[in-house]
Amino acid sequence: MFKNMYNWIDERLDITPMWRDIADHEVPEHVNPAHHFSAFVYCFGGLTFFITVIQILSGMFLTMYYVPDIINAYYSVDYLQHQVAFGAIVRGMHHWGASLVIVMMFLHTLRVFFTGSYKAPREMNWVVGMLIFFVMLGLGFTGYLLPWDDKAYYATKVGLEIAGAVPFLGEYIKELANGGTIVGAQTLTRFFAIHVFFLPGVLLALLAGHFFMIRKQGISGPL
């Protein structure tokens, strides 16, 4: 039956070449830890993606309970943490996953750097990867404010003061992020929007580019 369904779609959309391209490519020996244990360093990119998927899924569940306003934000997180079934697990996954994704991405970046894989013809993919890195840091920074406890509030205040020190543009960046002159109600809704809509959108676009380029160019050869 599935074969019939597949054929029905394939007749209309010609999806076989796409599927073939994803499924049928070979993985060379030098990146396969089954053959060379040291090749485990090539796992970090995949693990970064794995944790990113966890972040997206757990984040989607968190937004079912989280309320982005300064009166209720803290109490919605408190409720999520203590009253909602498995709320502590989902929030825990999002909290610790945020750190783990940075760790994995950092290791992946180091692997690419020290194996010189960013060299021609893969320059563009490195640049896109670095942009993903910055987007992830942005996600970490904006997400840190959302529980609206003292730690979140003061970290954001300090962070935006540092952003304000950038010459010429600093004050504008700061005011744009603050949504005014102080860290307050506008800042929280803005950070929520940036954390949940803007940056994930950018992230998905960049990831698509990252993966498209990997498939197009293949993985870099052995050293």
């Binding site: 999002h94 945020a98 609206w148 509030y153």
Partner: peptide, 27 residues
């Protein structure tokens, strides 16, 4: 995740002058 529940402090209080600001570890 199960061994270490995600931390949560007290509600943000802009008048709390004694709070020591700390960003997340990777900053």
């Amino acid at each position: 995740v199960i061994a270490e529940p995600a931390p949560l402090g007290y509600p943000a209080n802009p008048l709390n002058s004694s709070f020591i600001p700390m960003p997340d570890w990777y900053f």
